[in-house]
Nucleic acid binder design. Sequence first.
DNA 1: GATGAATGAGAATTCATTCAT
DNA 2: GATGAATGAATTCTCATTCAT
Lengths: 201, 201, 201, 201
Amino acid sequence: MHERSATGGADGGRRSRGARTRARLLQAATRVFAERGLEAARVDDIVAAARTSHGTFYLYFGNKEELFAALAEEVAAELQALADDLPEQLVEDRAALRAWLARLTSTYRTHGPVLRAWTEAEVHGDAFGRLGTDLHARFGRALLRRLPRLDGLDPQLTAVALVAMIERLNYYQLAGHVRLRRDVMLDALTDVVVRMLDSRR
Amino acid sequence: MHERSATGGADGGRRSRGARTRARLLQAATRVFAERGLEAARVDDIVAAARTSHGTFYLYFGNKEELFAALAEEVAAELQALADDLPEQLVEDRAALRAWLARLTSTYRTHGPVLRAWTEAEVHGDAFGRLGTDLHARFGRALLRRLPRLDGLDPQLTAVALVAMIERLNYYQLAGHVRLRRDVMLDALTDVVVRMLDSRR
Amino acid sequence: MHERSATGGADGGRRSRGARTRARLLQAATRVFAERGLEAARVDDIVAAARTSHGTFYLYFGNKEELFAALAEEVAAELQALADDLPEQLVEDRAALRAWLARLTSTYRTHGPVLRAWTEAEVHGDAFGRLGTDLHARFGRALLRRLPRLDGLDPQLTAVALVAMIERLNYYQLAGHVRLRRDVMLDALTDVVVRMLDSRR
Amino acid sequence: MHERSATGGADGGRRSRGARTRARLLQAATRVFAERGLEAARVDDIVAAARTSHGTFYLYFGNKEELFAALAEEVAAELQALADDLPEQLVEDRAALRAWLARLTSTYRTHGPVLRAWTEAEVHGDAFGRLGTDLHARFGRALLRRLPRLDGLDPQLTAVALVAMIERLNYYQLAGHVRLRRDVMLDALTDVVVRMLDSRR
DNA sequence: GATGAATGAGAATTCATTCAT
DNA sequence: GATGAATGAATTCTCATTCAT
């Protein structure tokens, strides 16, 4: 099917008409998912937002889920790259840890609508649920590998707990449940992670 | 409307016919929500599971959401009581903290299906979203009040982060994303909380 | 079935319990028909207004229509008696004509709710439609018999037209489409009828 | 929404597919309302009569009432134009009056089904009730303006009474309560109106 | 006589998806 | 490539009527 990049917009209208239509649909869907949520979003809303027609929608995507998959996979790729880039030294290099958390936060902010919709899918327990679980696991494993010897702490659970905390805090921020200044949150989060992992204290 | 108690289950069939039917619907809905999720659950599924009719359903609940509200409010009450019972001394009295975490975990396990559906509603951003946010805030405030002086840690964020961690970990356990033995998880979680809050170290 | 008078209330509680319940249902139905209309009135509304139960309703009436029939027949009887009492001399005895019109107006006012519901049934074209048409015809024939020789006017149509006018004007008054003082309306209506029929002018 | 003209019928199939479908629905609804009445008519009946589907119905109309509104407004426009065209000289120019009554009768005949349904709506007291009352008032005012000085007759009531008579007589004819030859009815009606208004007699 | 819980056949409405143009 | 009218299965909700107590 149509697998050209849908959002890499730097080719200023050079893409074929089809590619542009597809991209317009993806962008529109992002907006609609953000406003209505995944389940409540109607194909009708999406094609209206994209100023195109039902027929066109099905020209590019087999159904709503398939469109969402295209969106989600982009974000997943970004998050996986992020997981792999977790600094080797978490405690020793606070600056690197903070920078990494900043990247993560940016990603959450940029892809907020998709991530929120994803959380919804996750609850439904379908394909995206699994994708989400995999991502979590990947984050957990990346963290686990960098974890210093922790006197008495179960490393697996610690990793999971940290991921949960980081991920949820970003999610709350995204959903508007908490409203913290970006730098305050980053400082504090860095503190918390370091505090938990620094066995020298 | 018919608002008799639906769960006071210890009266073995003594309740009036109506009360029993209502309770049957609540139980059936719990099962269906667990299996299908809140959004995907059909009134049809619920009445089939309760071995009753559509008409009867609407005799007791205005719609699916209202039924879920009845379910959710029970759980909310329990969780709020729990928030209020958080031990005064978190670091000094490990045993009390662990016991409290155990209670929380039990609640999560007992009301798993409802909580999972709740998370779903939360994403949709409707009334339960707010109820959930309130609950979170309550947990956060309770924790904040018990927090020892933390050298350099932002207390508010620490509280939120801890709640996020505890809550999510329980949720993961519930959703099957992680599978940890109950006592291992409790020990580890206690460790993590104490470690974060213990300023004597 | 139960054919005792339902509204002749002067026997102060002497009626059997059943008769009282039946009367309560009839009164309640009158109120509900007035508020909601015939079609929109629910058995539920009626039994609520009568402070009784669904089961009881069907103890006394086979269905909603049957109850309405009981109500309508009382009014029909009154209107038929009225038709038969039309004064012999319409033009010569203005006072008698005015008195008769006053009786008709009173009847409309007293049985307003039922008559309004009746008009509704009439449109639906069911049994009451026929009953209503019969009544109209009876009024028309009564009028026709008293009509003086009218130079050049078709007597049948004149009678029908007069009935239509009288009936409609009362209906408008009832429905609130026009709001005229009772005596003004009676005087004017008397004038109009006399003017139309007085061939001496 | 789809608001293209639905009745401009002289373009024999030139209209777009949508416009034709919409027109088919309107025609079908007219038939169904005539047969079953407004309240009893089912969307199902209408789409069956129009040989289309439920989905299509809701593509063009929000619901049954909205469809009826479209129908009723056409007729209302015609009746309002008629009210405005009432001849200036009612008594002096019998021929003009008769012609006007003929037009009114034709309108009633042409739009019979809609008018009958309208009467039903009027009883229910909803939006069409008001529209109908307005129309009546308009007829009344038009008549009032043309009314000659009437020795002793209340002009307002006379106008209302005449409108009631004319309107009802046409309605009876339509509903089949009376069955008069068209020219006989027109002659008689003209006679009655002139007789009532002619002060020279 | 009276009750009110239970029923289930309908009715309205929505929305993903198809397909002729 | 694009369109948008048409579809109909799926779903929610209502309400007259029955019936066990």
